[in-house]
């Protein structure tokens, strides 16, 4: 009986994670309003991947859709985690940065375009290293600019997660929505293990990694604002709720004095775990 209910639920479910980046973007915008820009049929392939004998994707793994959110102008930028680990190269990075810049320019002309970024990304695409890094700096700049006018909402649904320079972008967003399948961290587990050794970070110990960087933990620490089920209508509703809140009174990244004091007075000799992280952020949760 319960098994049958599970199956029925699954069949009727509206998993967001199972959607492609393009489907995710379309599913968040008001029905019928979504229009893709610089899409696959414009064939903006990465010039660097084919030069290295790597099969490229026609949209370079970044989908930009313009449309309406609750009747207001919006742009959704979705990263396709399946293509090259959601890594950002020159073209995809430029699409994302430029879309956010155009949204900011709209606001300067009294068009209240808001932006949503769907993060599924390992960060810089190493095959385009410095151009990926440069584009990410431009994305940071654009988020800083746009978030003066309108909330920029980040969503990390999973299952790739959000790492590298794009985790910094996530940390600059006005609001961040995660699921239990999300992970958020600066450095990928394999890289930390390589750099610091297995005793410091065991990249094969999945429960350990999830306990530190998983969506539930990040939300409990106040590093994300909402923990939502993997359900498209629920995620969309949470997005609309945050947009309705307007700009946050104190963005997460503006708490430097507080965080600096907490870090300087904590016991940094003891190795970290999920509990010590929650303790560090305990009085750090936003009102």
């Amino acid at each position: 009986m319960s098994h049958r209910q599970d199956i029925t639920c699954l069949l009727q479910g509206h998993s967001f994670i199972e959607l492609s980046a393009r489907e995710r973007a379309h599913s968040l915008l008001d029905a019928g309003s979504s229009r893709e820009l610089a899409g696959p049929f414009d064939r903006q392939y990465s010039p660097w991947l084919s030069a290295q004998g790597i099969v490229a994707q026609a949209d370079d793994g970044v989908v930009i859709c313009k449309g309406l959110l609750d009747g207001q102008p919006a742009v959704v930028a979705a990263i396709e985690g399946g293509f090259q680990g959601g890594s950002l190269g020159e073209v995809g990075g430029a699409k994302l940065a430029c879309a956010l810049e155009l949204a900011a320019a709209d606001n300067r002309q009294s068009i209240p375009t808001r932006a949503v970024i769907l993060f599924e990304t390992g960060g810089v695409r190493l095959q385009e290293a410095n151009l990926g890094l440069a584009a990410i700096a431009e994305i940071h700049s654009a988020i800083a600019d746009l978030s003066r006018y309108q909330p920029v909402v980040g969503i990390i649904a999973g299952t790739v997660g959000c790492f590298g320079g794009m985790s910094i972008a996530a940390g600059m967003c006005s609001y961040l929505i995660v699921t239990r399948e999300a992970r958020l961290g600066l450095n990928g587990p394999q890289v930390i293990e390589q750099e610091a050794g297995m005793a410091e970070y065991d990249s094969r110990n999945r429960p350990f990694i999830w306990s530190l960087t998983g969506g539930e933990q990040r939300q409990a620490c106040g590093l994300a604002d909402a923990l939502v089920e993997d359900d498209t209508p629920l995620i969309r509703q949470q997005l609309l709720d945050f947009i309705a809140c307007g700009l946050p009174a104190e963005p997460r990244h503006r708490r430097s004095q507080h965080m600096l004091q907490r870090l300087l007075t904590m016991d940094s000799t003891t190795q970290a775990d999920a509990a010590s992280a929650r303790q560090l952020f305990q009085s750090g949760a936003r009102p």
Binding site: P40, F41, S50, V55, Q57, A58, E80, G82, F83, Q84
Partner: peptide
């Protein structure tokens, strides 16, 4: 457009062409 260039997967783009021929390019 169907698919993604993900591991073990592929992307197919179709656009109309003049009558009489199918041109297929594969990477």
């Amino acid at each position: 457009l169907v698919g993604v260039v993900a591991s073990g997967d592929l992307e197919i783009l179709i656009t109309p062409a003049p009558a009489g021929r199918c041109h297929i390019t594969i990477h």
